[in-house]
Design a protein around this nucleic acid. Structure first.
Lengths: 118, 118
DNA sequence: TCCATACCTCGACATACGTCTAGCTAATGG
DNA sequence: CCATTAGCTAGACGTATGTCGAGGTATGGA
C-alpha cells in the first residue's frame, strides 16, 4: 500500500454496477474495497452478528466489549470503522449510544459482489 | 492486530451459518474475515472483475499486469491472495497460468453476508 | 454539587500489508 | 543449445492497522 488509499465518504449508500457485470472503474473498486476493509476483521464480523442479533433497537459499546472481551476503546474503534463505512446506524440515548446494523447498506454491498446478480 | 491472525486453510468452500442468522463463532468469524480480507483491496476488486469478465477460460498474469499498470510481481502477489482464499481457480497451460473466478466460492461468501438470507 | 457511568480521543506499540527490484525456474522457439 | 518469455519467490521499503492505557467529556443520579 505504498500509495495511501484516499479517505472518501462512505456513509451514503453504495451504488455501483455489480463486479460481475463488467470491469469496474477505479473509483468503484475503491468504494467497494474500503467497505470490505471495514468488514474484513474477525472482531468486526462478530460485532456485526451481535448487532444484527440485537435487532433494530441496537446494542451499546459496553455490552459488546463485555461480550468480546475487549476494552471499550477497542470496541469504539471497531464501531467507528463500521459506522464510517455506513454499515451501522448510531443513535444516542442519554449517556449511551445504541448501534444497529444498517441492513440496506449491507445488502447493497452484498449485491455488488454477487456473481449471480446479472 | 496484536494477536496475529492464524493462517488457516481457505481453499475449501466456505460453509457456515449466515452472519444474520445468529451470533457467529470465533472460528466462523475468522474464516469469513480472512476471505473478506483477500477481497478488501481496490486492486483485487478490479482484478476480480477483470477475471470475471474473461469468463471460464481465465486470464494471464501478464495481461492483468498490463491492464492494471502494475508489475507482474505485484499482480502475482494479489493473485496469490485471491487463490489462497479460494476465490480463483488457476490452471497451468504450458508456460502460462490462467486464472478464472470461482463463482461458487464468491457466491458462498456473499450468501453468508446477506442480511436477507434468513 | 459531586460522583459514577458510558463513550470517545490520543498516543504508543507491534504487526500486517502493498509495492517494487532482483533473481530464479520452467516452457517455448529458433 | 541458447535466447526469450511467463511466472514465481525473496527481500526491502514505507504505510496502515488492531490493541491497549490514560485521560477527556457529557449524562444521570444522590
Amino acid at each position: 500500500m505504498p500509495k495511501s488509499l484516499p479517505t472518501i465518504e462512505l456513509s451514503g449508500a453504495l451504488c455501483c454496477p455489480p463486479v460481475a457485470a463488467g470491469v469496474v472503474s477505479d473509483d468503484d473498486a475503491l468504494e467497494v474495497a474500503l467497505r470490505l476493509k471495514a468488514l474484513a476483521d474477525p472482531v468486526r464480523i462478530k460485532l456485526l452478528s451481535l448487532v444484527l442479533a440485537a435487532g433494530p433497537q441496537g446494542t451499546r459499546n459496553i455490552d459488546l466489549a463485555r461480550e468480546l472481551q475487549l476494552t471499550d476503546a477497542t470496541v469504539s474503534h471497531h464501531l467507528g470503522q463500521l459506522s464510517r463505512a455506513g454499515l451501522l446506524l448510531a443513535t444516542r440515548q442519554g449517556a449511551s449510544t445504541f448501534y444497529a446494523a444498517d441492513r440496506l447498506a449491507l445488502g447493497a454491498l452484498v449485491t455488488v459482489l454477487d456473481p449471480n446478480c446479472c
